[in-house]
Simulated scan of single mutants.
Amino acid sequence: MGTLTKQIYRYTHPRSMRHNENLWPFVKIQRDKNNAISHLNYRGENVPLVDLTSLKENFKGEVLLTATGPSIKKIDFSTVPSMPTVGVNGAWHLNSDLDFKFYIIVDMIFVDNKPDIIEEIIKKEDLVLFTTMHGIVRIIDKFTLNKVKCKLAVIEDKCYPIYEKKISNADIYNNFNTHKGIIFSKENINIAFNHDIRNGIFDAGTVIYWSLQILSYLGFKKIYVVGLDMTNFSTPRFYETKNDMLPSFLAEKLQEIIIPAFSLASLELKKDGVDVVNLSLESAIPSHIFPKMDYRDAFK
């Protein structure tokens, strides 16, 4: 976005709304009764969006969630039974083996640095791409709206709502403890899980945490996760080499944020009758949170 519009925005809006400076005044939105963004106009063009309410509990049964840890290389996907498949970030490299129905990207560093992957994802007409408003804007700027053939589902960080004030991590509990469907970690009351993604999703340093909130909302009852290693962070992701690795910021968040968040997610998903099976045997996520299983045993 232009430097002039950024300066105008900064002079006319409080610092707590700085996360919107790259959107204003080109992004215009409307919200529905559930506070979901229901209409989007970007630079005078209407951008079709998936109605999140239409997806609520619209699915059932099993789903495969593909993370990007190195353990992916050990899996023979020809032995994995057919089921709806969800990809995140560079999992698209499995496209020849898996038919992705859903995709989730919230990391703008990935969007900026992997345009070749993004271009392939947005070509798939029967795919629903969950991404943030900043993701949608970047995609349209890079490829134009005409080249977006997939369906776009806009999701928001609960603490950074579009055209509203941000909520600091230290204020999460104080701001949301009376909100229906939002549950807090007993280990850290500023880690939360939202059962209704229409009004925002809580971050915990990893797109997989976003994914669990989304898949629970969609109605799936058994989530198989591959590539959830959360260890050896200096090792390239399954599709990378040492020369083209994007940075990872997971190591410093693992113990204080990610593991408590996954623990909370596990409890909440179990209450809803949702089982999560971690198919990465070397995963740093403890088995009491998500049971680990060899994929060959899981899909016998």
Rank of each mutant, 00 (worst) to 15 (best):
151 K>T: 01
208 I>L: 14
197 I>P: 00
127 L>E: 08
147 K>M: 07
211 S>K: 04
108 M>S: 15
192 A>P: 04
165 K>P: 08
211 S>T: 08
217 Y>E: 04
213 Q>A: 01
182 I>P: 02
142 K>L: 13
124 K>T: 08
157 D>L: 01
179 H>G: 13
133 M>I: 08
218 L>S: 02
141 D>I: 10
168 S>D: 15
156 E>S: 01
194 N>P: 02
161 P>G: 00
212 L>R: 06
160 Y>V: 05
146 N>C: 12
112 D>H: 12
180 K>V: 12
166 K>F: 10
166 K>Y: 05
134 H>V: 09
160 Y>I: 07
167 I>V: 14
121 I>R: 01
143 F>H: 00
138 R>C: 06
155 I>H: 01
164 E>A: 07
158 K>D: 05
148 V>H: 03
170 A>S: 10
204 A>C: 11
165 K>F: 06
183 I>P: 10
134 H>I: 10
159 C>F: 12
146 N>G: 15
189 I>V: 15
162 I>N: 04
183 I>F: 15
161 P>W: 01
118 I>W: 11
215 L>W: 02
156 E>V: 00
166 K>N: 10
169 N>K: 14
206 T>K: 06
144 T>L: 11
136 I>D: 02
116 D>W: 09
182 I>H: 00
123 K>M: 05
109 I>N: 13
162 I>G: 02
135 G>V: 03
197 I>E: 03
136 I>G: 00
179 H>Y: 15
159 C>K: 11
217 Y>K: 03
124 K>Y: 04
118 I>A: 14
109 I>G: 11
143 F>T: 03
106 V>G: 10
135 G>R: 01
112 D>P: 03
133 M>H: 03
107 D>T: 07
151 K>P: 02
134 H>D: 15
199 N>I: 05
114 K>A: 13
138 R>T: 03
157 D>G: 05
205 G>T: 04
209 Y>Q: 01
138 R>H: 05
121 I>D: 00
193 F>G: 00
189 I>D: 15
145 L>C: 09
120 E>G: 11
131 T>M: 06
109 I>Y: 12
116 D>S: 11
142 K>E: 07
178 T>C: 14
162 I>A: 05
167 I>K: 07
143 F>S: 06
187 E>A: 14
217 Y>W: 03
196 D>G: 10
175 N>S: 13
217 Y>Q: 03
133 M>L: 12
109 I>Q: 15
145 L>A: 11
183 I>T: 14
169 N>P: 07
118 I>R: 11
214 I>S: 02
130 F>R: 03
203 D>C: 04
107 D>E: 09
172 I>V: 13
206 T>L: 09
171 D>S: 13
128 V>Y: 07
118 I>H: 15
203 D>V: 00
158 K>Q: 14
149 K>D: 12
202 F>Q: 02
153 A>F: 06
191 I>V: 12
190 N>E: 11
169 N>D: 09
157 D>T: 03
208 I>Y: 09
209 Y>V: 10
117 I>K: 04
186 K>W: 13
191 I>L: 09
